[in-house]
């Protein structure tokens, strides 16, 4: 063991320089010439800067709601509820969310609410909702903002992000981008 101590030590230092020094520097250098300088995708709206991939809390009736979050959409941290599927406390939470949704969205049947609107995401920062999750909110937003429902449906259609290469994965809608466009609709 003694004999291997010095070579092991020296090789470790070289590996440290290579994998923790040079490798991240290469990636960082490349990131600096990408559109967002390697600081995450950003959108600018009226002089305000938002992270496109970080979900925001939308609970106001005039916006499309985002999903419930275990970290209140504060990206200083991240995480899910970690509640088991048959945990009674968890089931109570979901029931309350359904009831709240029903109060704010009159004229909607329970069976129209998709589960993503009443369950917390894994990261607590999910930027997206399902297509059904957006459509079920149209009635409320049309009433709050006095906009025709057709206009909202076509907005949802425009904002729908199709599967990757139109072949792989689900369709979805980025709530932040949807609400930014909604503000422009007037």
């Amino acid at each position: 063991m003694k004999k291997e101590l010095l070579p092991s030590f020296l090789l470790s230092i070289i590996c440290l320089i290579l994998f923790s020094g040079i490798y991240p520097l290469i990636i960082w250098g490349i990131a600096c010439v990408t559109p967002n300088n390697g600081e995450g995708e950003v959108i600018n709206v009226n002089g305000k800067k938002y992270y496109a991939n970080i979900g925001q809390k939308f609970t106001d009736d005039k916006y499309f709601y985002s999903r419930p979050s275990a970290v209140a959409y504060n990206a200083a941290g991240s995480g899910g509820s970690n509640k088991g599927p048959y945990n009674e406390e968890y089931q109570e939470d979901v029931k309350k969310r359904i009831d709240t949704f029903m109060v704010h969205n009159p004229g909607i049947a329970k069976s129209e609410i998709p589960s993503d609107l009443v369950t917390a995401s894994g990261s607590g920062l999910d930027p997206d909702i399902s297509i059904q999750g957006a459509k079920v909110q149209v009635k409320r937003i049309a009433a709050t903002r006095h906009i025709a429902e057709d206009k909202l449906y076509s907005l949802i259609d425009n904002q729908t992000e199709r599967p990757f290469l139109s072949m792989f994965g689900p369709s979805k809608i980025n709530v932040l981008k949807l609400n930014v466009m909604l503000e422009n609709l007037k």
């Binding site: 899910g80 509820s81 970690n82 599927p85 069976s111 589960s115 993503d116 894994g122 059904q132």
Partner: peptide
């Protein structure tokens, strides 16, 4: 509870 689950078990 009567809601639909088109995406499956979405908690987490």
């Amino acid at each position: 509870m009567g809601i639909s689950q088109p995406g499956g078990n979405m908690e987490g």
